[in-house]
Simulated assay, not measured.
Amino acid sequence: MRTIRRTLVASALALPLTLGAAGIASADTYGSTEVQAGPDGAATHSVQSDTHRGSSSFHENSAAAGPDGAAHSSTSATAGENGDSQYRQHSGWAGQDGAGSSETHSSTDGGSDQGVLSGTLGAIGL
């Protein structure tokens, strides 16, 4: 289970570095895939990012399986040319001690509607 946790932690830490590296490269598309297999299990990790006509997207997936269990993690973020955006992070795991999952998501519609904070700040003149 330690290997699975290490893989998930490494994937989470790689996200900011990957986003920075994609910006430095100034490419319209970026992709990377790693696959590993050995006597203690197998793991895969992929990153894809794309910009096209004012929209951009980022997707990262990783999975690992070994003698102590299996785990999966995915993160995606998109931004449209009209200001709409979405973020989703999901992870799941199963092992000898049980199973679990977690999800976080957020989105904006990109329309002219103001959020609660910006509407309040605008109303008081800030």
Rank of each mutant, 00 (worst) to 15 (best):
residue 85 S to D: 09
residue 107 S to H: 14
residue 61 N to E: 15
residue 121 L to E: 10
residue 53 R to V: 05
residue 54 G to L: 03
residue 86 Q to C: 09
residue 105 H to R: 14
residue 124 I to T: 04
residue 49 S to Y: 07
residue 53 R to Y: 05
residue 41 G to D: 01
residue 73 S to D: 11
residue 68 D to E: 13
residue 121 L to T: 14
residue 39 P to K: 02
residue 119 G to E: 04
residue 45 H to G: 04
residue 63 A to C: 09
residue 38 G to L: 02
residue 119 G to Y: 04
residue 106 S to Y: 12
residue 50 D to R: 15
residue 50 D to L: 13
residue 82 N to Q: 12
residue 83 G to R: 03
residue 82 N to M: 10
residue 64 A to H: 07
residue 81 E to L: 06
residue 45 H to A: 09
residue 117 L to C: 01
residue 84 D to Q: 09
residue 61 N to V: 14
residue 70 A to D: 08
residue 77 A to I: 15
residue 99 A to H: 07
residue 44 T to M: 12
residue 113 D to H: 06
residue 40 D to P: 13
residue 62 S to W: 04
residue 80 G to N: 10
residue 123 A to E: 10
residue 46 S to P: 06
residue 51 T to Y: 02
residue 93 W to K: 03
residue 94 A to W: 01
residue 122 G to Y: 02
residue 47 V to H: 01
residue 94 A to R: 04
residue 58 F to N: 01
residue 48 Q to C: 07
residue 50 D to H: 11
residue 55 S to D: 08
residue 94 A to P: 04
residue 105 H to L: 11
residue 47 V to S: 02
residue 46 S to Y: 04
residue 120 T to K: 09
residue 107 S to G: 12
residue 66 G to C: 01
residue 102 S to G: 13
residue 60 E to Q: 15
residue 101 S to M: 11
residue 95 G to P: 00
residue 75 T to Q: 10
residue 88 R to K: 11
residue 115 G to N: 02
residue 90 H to D: 09
residue 120 T to L: 11
residue 60 E to R: 14
residue 118 S to N: 11
residue 42 A to T: 03
residue 124 I to P: 06
residue 78 T to E: 06
residue 51 T to Q: 06
residue 53 R to Q: 10
residue 96 Q to I: 03
residue 62 S to M: 12
residue 123 A to Y: 09
residue 113 D to N: 10
residue 52 H to V: 06
residue 81 E to Y: 07
residue 112 S to H: 13
residue 61 N to F: 12
residue 89 Q to D: 13
residue 92 G to I: 00
residue 39 P to I: 02
residue 122 G to N: 14
residue 110 G to T: 03
residue 68 D to L: 01
residue 51 T to S: 05
residue 65 A to P: 12
residue 112 S to I: 12
residue 65 A to Q: 15
residue 121 L to I: 13
residue 91 S to D: 07
residue 83 G to I: 02
residue 112 S to F: 09
residue 122 G to C: 05
residue 76 S to M: 10
residue 84 D to E: 05
residue 86 Q to W: 09
residue 125 G to S: 02
residue 65 A to F: 05
residue 122 G to L: 04
residue 61 N to A: 15
residue 41 G to H: 02
residue 92 G to Q: 09
residue 51 T to V: 06
residue 66 G to Q: 01
residue 42 A to I: 03
residue 121 L to G: 02
residue 56 S to R: 06
residue 119 G to D: 08
residue 73 S to I: 12
residue 101 S to C: 10
residue 111 G to C: 05
residue 76 S to T: 15
residue 50 D to T: 13
residue 108 T to D: 10
residue 117 L to R: 04
residue 89 Q to C: 08
residue 110 G to P: 05
residue 48 Q to H: 07
residue 115 G to Y: 00
residue 72 H to I: 11
residue 108 T to V: 15
residue 123 A to I: 06
residue 94 A to C: 06
residue 85 S to I: 06
residue 74 S to Y: 04
residue 44 T to Q: 13
residue 105 H to K: 14
residue 99 A to G: 08
residue 123 A to K: 12
residue 47 V to P: 04
residue 122 G to A: 13
residue 85 S to G: 09
residue 38 G to P: 12
residue 56 S to W: 03
residue 97 D to G: 00
residue 79 A to T: 12
residue 103 E to Y: 05
residue 72 H to F: 07
residue 67 P to I: 01
residue 101 S to L: 09
residue 54 G to K: 06
residue 75 T to Y: 09
residue 113 D to F: 03
residue 58 F to R: 06
residue 69 G to S: 01
residue 120 T to V: 11
residue 46 S to N: 10
residue 99 A to C: 05
residue 125 G to Q: 00
residue 87 Y to D: 14
residue 53 R to F: 05
residue 107 S to D: 12
residue 74 S to I: 01
residue 49 S to M: 06
